[in-house]
Write a protein that binds this DNA or RNA. Structure first.
Lengths: 261, 261
DNA sequence: TGTTGATGGTTCATTATTTGAACCGTTGGT
DNA sequence: ACCAACGGTTCAAATAATGAACCATCAACA
């Protein structure tokens, strides 16, 4: 791996729970030498990608990422274009809508919208990383990935997050087959107990999913009516987002969704 | 300069006007060897910072920057925290409000809000880079920078963007003195003919400005009443944003702003 | 149809940069 | 007063970056 890769990997050590990282801790986490870490960090600091803060001189992500993200959004209005649809979806279903994108081997939540309808709702966080096997969004995406990539992701450890999390690759494969047949994924309590969710894969061009659109709600609120409402609204919203992105869903999937509405 | 710096500099070659850049062009723009460019780009691509797209295999900013920006925002809610204030400011003044942050030697617009009041308004773009000498936001920030940094920025070329752009460092220095005395900056037609704007510096801690809050409007709408309204609203909004950021404006500046309201 | 010039991408000997153990100066706790 | 942890620095040794020359491909053009 080249020097640049090492530097960029350092950026991935920042998480929401660990927004500030000191030099030594960074070296420990990355496995790199402290001096190497220091050089990489100062180099990234000079470009504003990270910044040093406070008396402890800890590092955190810098303001340059905001500019880059704004630039990316004007070039490819992924988040901004989907935001209104997401809000409408939350309003129409009365539940929490969220949009996740695939980034290599990670599934990252990049936007979400709440509904004011109910006091209890499923809360989300930006930049959350969702497990492939235990969320409806993860299953929706992974089901519509080329077989090789799907198997690569299934070959990784599948942690049992709750009592009902499916951790057997074989069983999971069967579920993904079902997802592919229905055009959407549904999970109940596999990620967080009491939370249920429905998700549809999102496409740009070709048959490969690039992300997912989901609605999550407290499982105790689940009724056939609510579910069919959510499926219906999701199908419309997903089609709309794909359209806004200038993409196209595979004909087979589009047909499945039409039946939902 | 290290390898990492070179790679990150490649990211800065992407602009709104040039969202897609091919390999050869990138080498040309950066002055690096084509092979070097290619290696740096593929390495950044493997981390999602850039992506390759289309038949021409051109490069553009990748989805990873969205995740990083979202993470930065949860750690340091710069944009999201200021957004409501910005919208209120646009509503109260009836004009275009915008927020810019200093990133090293650049001043970058990271958010803005329009008012529906008038059909004609000053339009803005995310990730715009503002010239220090020709915008009220630039002057507001540069006036409240340590002398050494101010002089470094004044020593660079100061392009004449319109007929009335001040390009003489000496004259500019005098203007900045005035800005410091008044606590805000005002320019008319120095960036774009027909556009007028007022801006206040933003502080985090200490006397060094980290950004600016501005309101821009068509010069032909300018009246003493509008100006005093804008100054008043700006003072309140700037104080609010600084407070939301957990910062503090220098006592002298805070006093000047209080007189405006 | 063959030529030209552009593109993205690859190779490999040369070269310059990265690397890391050991070091320094501070700080905070015991 | 001590110790351990912190951020940061040094410099010879090791490794990774570099770039001229090279393909393959494509589009325009004669």
């Amino acid at each position: 791996m080249g020097t640049v890769g090492k530097a960029l990997d350092l950026l991935n050590l920042f998480t929401r729970q660990r927004a500030l990282v000191g030099l030594s801790e960074m070296a420990r986490l990355s496995g790199l030498n402290k001096a190497t870490c220091h050089r990489l960090l100062t180099e990234m600091e000079s470009r504003g990608l990270v910044e040093q803060v406070g008396a402890a001189r800890e590092y955190r992500l810098g303001p340059a990422v905001l500019r880059l993200a704004a630039l990316r959004e004007t070039a490819v209005p992924t988040r901004d274009a989907a935001m209104p649809v997401l809000q409408a979806l939350a309003r129409a279903t009365g539940e929490t809508a969220h949009l996740s994108l695939r980034e290599g081997d990670k599934l990252v939540t990049i936007a979400f919208a709440y509904s004011p309808t109910h006091a209890t709702k499923v809360m989300m966080e930006d930049a959350d990383i969702l497990p492939w096997h235990a969320t409806s969004s993860g299953q929706a995406v992974i089901a519509f990935l080329p077989e090789a990539e799907r198997e690569a992701l299934l070959a990784r450890p599948l942690p049992r997050l709750t009592d009902v999390t499916e951790t057997d690759p074989g069983q999971l494969r069967a579920r993904l087959d079902a997802v592919r047949l229905r055009g959407f994924a549904e999970t109940t309590g596999t990620f967080e107990t009491d939370a249920q969710s429905v998700a549809l894969p999102l496409f740009l061009n070709g048959d490969e999913a690039v992300g997912a659109l989901g609605v999550a709600f407290p499982a105790n609120r689940s009724t056939p009516d609510l579910l069919s409402c959510i499926r219906r609204e999701l199908a419309g919203a997903a089609a709309e987002i794909i359209d806004l992105w200038g993409g196209q869903s595979p004909p087979g999937v589009a047909l499945l969704w039409q039946r939902l509405t």
